[in-house]
Design a protein around this nucleic acid. Structure first.
Lengths: 189, 189
DNA sequence: GACGCTTGTCAACAGGCGTTGACAAAGCCA
DNA sequence: TGGCTTTGTCAACGCCTGTTGACAAGCGTC
């Protein structure tokens, strides 16, 4: 989407363009692998401008992470269908849900020393916390950890299989169904 | 364990010392965060020596990964107790099991562009494959993916909570018990 | 004892990184 | 039109990285 000629002068638009590009980049690559110059090239802007708008790379990463919104979108809709809905999204539509994009960013960079602390605090505030409150009932904390862990684990597992668990479509469906049952059991409890 | 004076000349010992140090480092930090000079300092040796013994950093990483052995250790013991055993190790003794150390390395570096391919192939060969063969029965592939995903996810979740899921000890026990039931159900199926 | 191979150290290189300050040009206001 | 602020570019800095080749010292062998 790069246009020839000089970039029109529009600070607000440029800022959000940078933020959008950063979100995409950090969802696809780790904190260490994403360079300021990469994001700048995506937007069609000089890397120095990013520093001026967002401060440091850490600040940009945090802004991108928080721009994904909290995980509450996961929890909208019928509670009795949570298992089916989430299992379907995790297995078949990893890129669709915005809250899963936030999780992609976390998973990509949780290993990095520079990013792990930001990831931890954000994850607690935007994922564990809301999930736990929404669950309610006995052992809500424990069930939230299990749910979150399972969802993250399946995302990692998909990643390891190269985007599709390295499974046949029919097998994916059966996995989705099994996963749905397990998740739902943790919801109902 | 650094001794003063020059290092005794012993190629084999030095080589394994380097490999051990690399395994520890890569289990604790991501591929990008681990520097050749860090490992060299741990061993008390010059970084150049590592290059000569192992070739490139990629080669060293792969050697460290493969030195953890395959995941078959996870599958030894009574099949009827698999759930309990693994749940206990995942929740309470993350550092104990060697095969979990291999998984730590994978989880730390799966996000890194340079390491992800090595992690993927190693994970398939040493973790998914053996688990699937060992499981047998209907839908072995699907159940193996679910099991592996859950185990990895709980490891990540523990990491995010700062080493203990951010839970009380009593809660950890209840989580272990719930996890054991879920894992065992996937084994038996 | 002198040679030669092995083992380890040291200094340096090329390349990449995030960040900074000076500079250019666009747009606004008087 | 002239000045001033905003927006963007450019070149450069200091730092860190993996890797290399030259050099030093230990050790076995003739």
């Amino acid at each position: 989407m790069l246009c020839p000629g000089p970039r029109p002068r529009n600070a607000a638009a440029t800022r959000t363009a940078i933020l959008d590009a950063a979100r995409e980049r950090f969802a696809a690559e780790s904190y260490d692998d994403v360079g300021m110059r990469d994001i700048a090239r995506d937007v069609g802007v000089d890397a120095a401008l990013i520093s001026r708008y967002f401060g440091s790379k850490d600040d940009l990463f945090l802004a991108a992470l928080e721009s994904c919104g909290d995980g509450s979108a996961l929890m909208q809709g019928d509670k009795a269908e949570f298992g089916k809905r989430v299992a379907h999204e995790v297995v078949f539509e990893p890129k669709k849900a915005d809250q899963l994009k936030g999780m992609s960013i976390m998973l990509r960079s949780i290993g990095s020393n520079r990013a792990s602390e930001m990831v931890q605090t954000t994850c607690s505030a935007q994922f564990f916390g809301p999930l736990q409150d929404w669950l309610g009932g006995p052992d809500a904390t424990v069930r939230a950890r299990l749910l979150a862990g399972f969802i993250m684990g399946m995302s990692i597992s998909r990643e390891l299989g190269g985007g599709s668990f390295d499974l046949e479509p029919a097998e994916c469906e059966r996995m989705r169904d099994r996963l749905a049952v397990i998740l739902q059991a943790l919801i109902d409890n």
